[in-house]
Amino acid sequence: MTAFVLKRIGFAVITLFAVLTLVFFIVRVLPGDPASVVLGDQASAATIEALRHKLGLDQPLIVQYLDFLGGVVRGDWGVSMATGRPVVQEVLNVLPYTIELTLAALVLGLAFGVPLGIWAAVNRNRIPDYLTRIVSLLGLSAPAFVSAVILLLLFAIQLRWFPVISSGQDTSLAGKLRDLTLPAVNLGLIMAAYITRVTRSAMLEVMSQDYVRTARAKGVPRNVVIWRHAFRNSLIPVVTVVGLYLGILIGNSVLTEIVFNRPGLGKLIVGALGQRDYTMLQGMMVIYTFIVVVINLLTDLVYGLVDPRVQYR
């Protein structure tokens, strides 16, 4: 187990390094640079050149790259080229909001997706199954920004239950939940749709196994068969999907954050892209990669908890 984790961490470091290098060069290939964005559209070419010099953007790429790597090794992610403030601090300012939203969406996704998936599976090819499949297909197909606007129109404008500006600034628990509900539901619906579908198919597979039939035949109550015998054994695909889509969820949070006016990594990265803020983009890409790598590792470890037969080598 320890060897397994160490090996995975080793791979993670290599992945991070590769991402770092790729991102460094990709952002610089994009036309436009932070100097011209910072100075606005009335600045002369000479002024822009002066700021490029100040930011070190006029140096050869390889020099910039080595400087950057040197900084990273020392734990220095540099300062944002647009705001002049440390990248790490800018990220830490908003990271909690993104984590909060992602976890809430995950909880909602599990709370809706797992029961719905089981429900559909035990009622295979009957009305509940059809309904669940249609609804989850809708959930998968509706773009996050469309469902977001619909949620706002319904719950913020018509019913006035929730605010349009879900800023997350209210620190009381009730206030926090109020701010979090609509964005989390918006993201959670997508998550729930994925989980429903994968739970359903995993359950169907397990339910057709011999041991389930045997359990039923010897008179084990239906609930026990579903939850103890079948569900536990269908968990591995569910955990895999949760792990995979958690990464996607963080990506999807961009649109959700913008429409619901929540602070977060998504808004930060959109801003950084618009401003061609190289240092910020580099830092953020590494953080995203790091999150995905950690989630994958955690997913692998959860397999062991779910299924004692899993061995780590």
């Binding site: 909880v107 909602l108 709370a111 809706f112 797992v114 029961p115 719905l116 089981i118 429900w119 009305i127 509940p128 309904l131 669940t132 609804v135 719950f155 019913l159 239950w161 929730f162 009730a174 939940l177 109020r178 509900t181 609930n223 939850w227």
Partner: peptide, 29 residues
């Protein structure tokens, strides 16, 4: 959908209703 067709027994083991109620209480505020 859940409320309509899923039997109460199946629901009992989920956090669904708790979450729902929490949402409604909050919303009222």
């Amino acid at each position: 959908l859940l409320q309509g067709r899923l039997s109460v027994k199946k629901l009992r083991h989920t956090h669904l209703r708790t979450a729902l109620l929490a949402g409604l209480v909050l919303a009222a505020g």
